[in-house]
């Protein structure tokens, strides 16, 4: 089964999103949160993303990374590169971080592959909250 890593500039935001997604997807899916710099300031930390990825990869087939903003994408990409051979088991998704994490977690719980998970995150871009 694939796992999910939420990367946000805020540790609290990442943890909150993971809490919501874990409740929806159940405990079978590994969903981890990573946010803030090494000192807990707003921002992202490559070493902290790297260690989160290493942890998730031990218990899952692959990891879908869902970053909140552009600079989180750069940090995630750098951490992925530092994984060496294991980098092939990590994919970075592009889409709304909260909605994307919820939908991808549910999809991961039924055994979907990384490409499918990334597509699901992308598709949540069109989700409407107000029904006409």
């Amino acid at each position: 089964m694939n796992a999910i890593l939420v990367v946000s500039h805020s540790a609290e935001a990442a943890r909150g999103i993971v809490a919501i997604a874990s409740q929806m997807a159940g405990e079978r899916v590994g969903i981890a949160a990573c946010g803030g710099t090494d000192d807990g300031e707003l921002g992202t930390s490559v070493p902290s993303i790297l260690s989160a990825l290493e942890g998730l990869l031990e218990t899952s087939d692959g990891v879908l990374v869902i970053p909140d903003l552009g600079s989180a994408v750069l940090a995630a990409r750098t951490a992925k590169d530092l994984l060496g051979e294991r980098a092939g088991r990590v994919l970075i998704a592009d889409g709304p971080v909260l909605e994307g994490t919820l939908m991808a977690s549910v999809e991961a719980s039924v055994g979907a592959g990384l490409d499918r998970l990334a597509a699901v995150v992308d598709e949540t871009r069109g989700l409407r909250k107000l029904q006409e």
């Binding site: 710099t37 090494d38 921002g43 490559v46 600079s71 940090a75 750098t78």
Partner: peptide, 18 residues
Amino acid sequence: GMTLMGNVGGASGPLYGT
């Protein structure tokens, strides 16, 4: 490089770190 990657926070962290 590793210190900048963990502590800068914005896009400059991974870029200068790299």
